[in-house]
């Protein structure tokens, strides 16, 4: 199945969770937040939230700005 991760299409295994996507991106363990189809997925639900086929996943962190 496929999902758009930070704007790029990615091939994901069936049953992939938000945690799977974060591992794929080599995301740091803190300072990161995830939106799945425009809704925030709380950290506690990363392991148990499945990414549906065709979903949009946004992984954000803090950068210099403002």
């Amino acid at each position: 199945m496929k999902a758009k991760v930070n704007g790029l299409e990615r091939e994901l295994a069936d049953g992939a969770t938000v945690a799977t996507v974060l591992a794929l991106l080599d995301a740091p363990s803190r300072g990161v937040a995830v939106a799945l189809d425009g809704e925030v997925v709380p950290r506690a639900a990363w392991e148990t939230t499945f990414v549906p086929d065709g979903a949009a996943v946004e992984v954000l962190t803090a950068v210099q700005g403002g």
């Binding site: 803090a62 700005g65 403002g66």
Partner: peptide, 30 residues
Amino acid sequence: TVAMRRLDASGGGVLDLLERLGIAALPNTA
């Protein structure tokens, strides 16, 4: 203040810096 951007964007590492300096981070919606 800090901005929120995609993980792969440049300008990261700022949180560690603020923490080391004991400065509170104020996220913006820029």
